[in-house]
Each structure stands twice: as C-alpha cells, then as structure tokens.
C-alpha cells in the first residue's frame, strides 16, 4: 500500500498541458522530493493532489482510498496537510492563534459559537506544543505581522505538523530563506518522525537532496526521471533538464 499515489494525472489550462500523465507512488514513511525547473508544473501537481484544482483525468489515492473527487477541505481530515510556497498565514493574529486555527480545522469544536476559544486549554496546549516543535514556543504571543520571514516559514510548517498528518506536502519550504534559516528548517524537517510521509517540492536539486529517499524530476508537466537520490543525480536526463536550457 502506498501512502500517496498519483495515477495518470493530467491538467490543462487553455490548451497548455501543465500536468501530463503524471504517475508515481510514495511509500509510507518515505521522503519524496519533487524537483524541476520553473514552469515544470510542481505547484499545479500539489494543487491537484490537495484538491484545490480538479484534474482533467487521472486519480489521486491516499492510502489506497480514491480521493480524486473529494472536496479539498475534507482531505486534511484524512491526514493530508500542506504548506504554501507563498506564505499564506493570518497576518492579524498571533503566532499562537495561527497554530490554533490549524488545530481547530480538524476539531468539531470549529462549529461551536458559544464557548470561548481562549478557554480551550487542550487546544492551547497542543498549539504551544506544535510551536515548540519548530522552536517558536517563546514567541507564541507575538503578532504574526511582527515576525521575520524565516519565522513565518516555520509557522507554516508548525501549522501543518500540528494537524498530525500522515502525508505532509511541503511546497518549497526553503524558498527565500537565509543560510542560517535553511539550516534550521533542514534540521526541523529531518526531525519529523517516520510515521509521517513527506512529499516536498524544490526548485533546485541541491537544497533538499540530503533529505530525500527518492526523487521525481518533473519537466513541462511530465515525469522525466524517477529513482533513488543517486540514480536521479547520475541520470543524464537530469543534467539535460537543468543544464540544457
């Protein structure tokens, strides 16, 4: 059984094929890196997997369950969480409140208009724990607007982790970070336990190479190479894609 499987997935925008018969399967606990140059269709692929876009053809399976037609809002409830390449957080709230919203998304409490959110001790505790995991515990009360870009990236990851996903989709988690911040995020990602399957998009090959078990190389919406780290690095087609243009 695969944690996440994509079968023959295709998507076109006005005649332009952005995803073309993409096929791959990620095993439980695996770290999968999806790389490809700009315009390779990486983010579109993520949006198809999370259901923010509907594929023209093909299917998406989460632990063998076909979720292709499942509304995207239902997928987190099945254990799928994602981060965004462009920071998509709640700028008016504190870091803690951002994390609480992530927890609330999976809690039936989210429909409750009668009780005070600040009195939900278990939510507060869980949110603080999620922030502690990414090293932001001591600044939990800080308004998001007053945090640095690197801290926001970590909030993104904390929110995804707070949902205790079985499959975690990371869209360029290193984008825009300084060298120090990259090191922090790298150690953070390598600390994620193996019961979480991680699928990560990166633009460059080198950035996250050491984190990956297997690599899928995407180019013009198609899978060009797939294999272990060593196989993909050694493959001449990889060179072609990255150097040929």
């Amino acid at each position: 059984m695969s944690a996440l499987a994509v079968k023959n997935l295709s998507k076109s925008f006005g005649g332009l094929r952005v995803t073309a018969n993409v096929d791959f399967a990620v095993e439980p606990g695996e770290r999968r890196l999806i790389i490809g140059p700009n315009g390779a269709g990486k983010t579109t692929l993520f949006n198809l997997i999370t259901g923010e876009l509907t594929p023209d053809a093909g299917s998406v399976l989460l632990f063998d369950r076909d979720i292709t037609r499942l509304p995207s809002r239902n997928r987190p409830h099945l254990g799928m969480a994602r981060t965004y390449q462009i920071i998509t957080l709640f700028p008016r709230d504190t870091i803690l409140r951002n994390a609480m919203l992530a927890l609330l998304g999976l809690s039936p409490l989210r429909w409750n208009p009668f009780t005070a959110l600040q009195r939900q001790q278990h939510l507060l505790d869980a949110a603080r724990a999620a922030l502690a995991r990414v090293g932001l515990a001591e600044m939990a009360e800080r308004p998001l607007a007053e945090t640095s870009y690197g801290e926001k990236r970590r909030v993104e990851i904390a929110m995804a982790l707070a949902q205790q996903p079985r499959v975690l989709l990371l869209d360029e988690p290193f984008a825009g970070l300084s060298i120090d911040e990259r090191r922090d995020v790298r150690s953070l990602l390598s600390s994620i336990p193996r019961d979480v399957t991680v699928v990560m998009i990166e633009h460059d090959m080198d950035t996250a190479l050491d984190l990956a078990d297997r690599i899928t190389l995407l180019h013009f919406g198609e899978v060009v190479v797939e294999g272990t780290r060593a196989e993909v690095v050694a493959d001449p087609r990889t060179r072609e894609v990255y150097l040929g243009e």
Binding site: Y84, T88, F90, P91, L106, R110, F114
Partner: peptide, 20 residues
C-alpha cells in the same frame, strides 16, 4: 468562540482555511 475565529480566518485567508 472557535466559530468566530474560523469566520475571521475565512476573511483573512479563505484558501488557507479550506486547506486546513
């Protein structure tokens, strides 16, 4: 309330709320 927080969330980041 939690619902009020969710509503404010849909105001600021509807897409993220959906993904959550």
């Amino acid at each position: 309330s939690p619902f009020g927080a969710a509503l404010a969330g849909t105001r600021d980041q509807p897409r993220r709320m959906n993904a959550l």
